[in-house]
């Protein structure tokens, strides 16, 4: 079962990776994704809101799908909430497996699905005082839906 946390506090990628590997000798590779708050168009901060209870359940369900699809030896997802200025970390996805392909692919799968299936909402706050809710992007749905098809066979293209 994956480790899932929704928290205001920052996270430490190195510490989380060490935890996932502690005492194990069967891990061949770990993959990580760290999402950061980017300073677009005079952004002063993002404020992230979630649905306590459902958000954790939804992430756990997505992680369970990843664990069913790839042979993972570990999986950690941490998503921050609250007010985050540019440069702050927002989300961590960390996967471990005996081989790199499973770690890399499941990490991409998790962040794509988190963007479309986990109940979080971002509000942007600008230097001039304007505020607006971020709208969902069609490209995020497209990124997630590429996982609907069976995993393609590798080819040389």
């Amino acid at each position: 079962m994956a480790t899932v946390r929704v928290q205001q506090a920052p996270f430490d990628l190195g510490a989380e990776a060490a935890l996932l590997a502690a005492g194990r000798t069967d891990i061949g590779g770990m993959a990580s994704f760290v999402g950061l708050c980017r300073a677009d168009d005079g952004l002063a901060a993002l404020t992230l809101e979630h649905y306590p209870g459902m958000t954790e359940r939804a992430i756990q369900a997505i992680a369970a799908q990843a664990e069913a699809r790839w042979p993972l030896t570990g999986c950690t997802v941490i998503h921050r909430v609250g007010r985050l200025p540019p440069g702050e970390q927002i989300v961590l996805v960390l996967t471990a497996s005996s081989h790199r392909a499973a770690a890399l692919e499941s990490c991409a799968f998790l962040i794509d699905w988190l963007k479309t299936r986990a109940p979080f909402w971002k509000r942007e706050e600008f230097a001039d005082g304007r505020e607006r809710w971020v709208e969902a992007k069609a490209e995020d749905d497209a990124a997630a839906s590429r996982w609907d098809a069976p995993a393609p066979l590798r080819d040389d293209h």
């Binding site: 109940p119 909402w121 809710w133």
Partner: peptide, 29 residues
């Protein structure tokens, strides 16, 4: 919409005692 913390469609049945949430499309990650 979510009914009892699961995403729900407009035709989903609701009943007394349910926890029903309404929100915009999600924008996390």
């Amino acid at each position: 919409c979510a009914v009892n913390q699961e995403f729900a469609t407009p035709d989903q049945v609701v009943k007394p005692g349910d926890e029903i949430a309404f929100f915009p499309p999600v924008t996390g990650g």
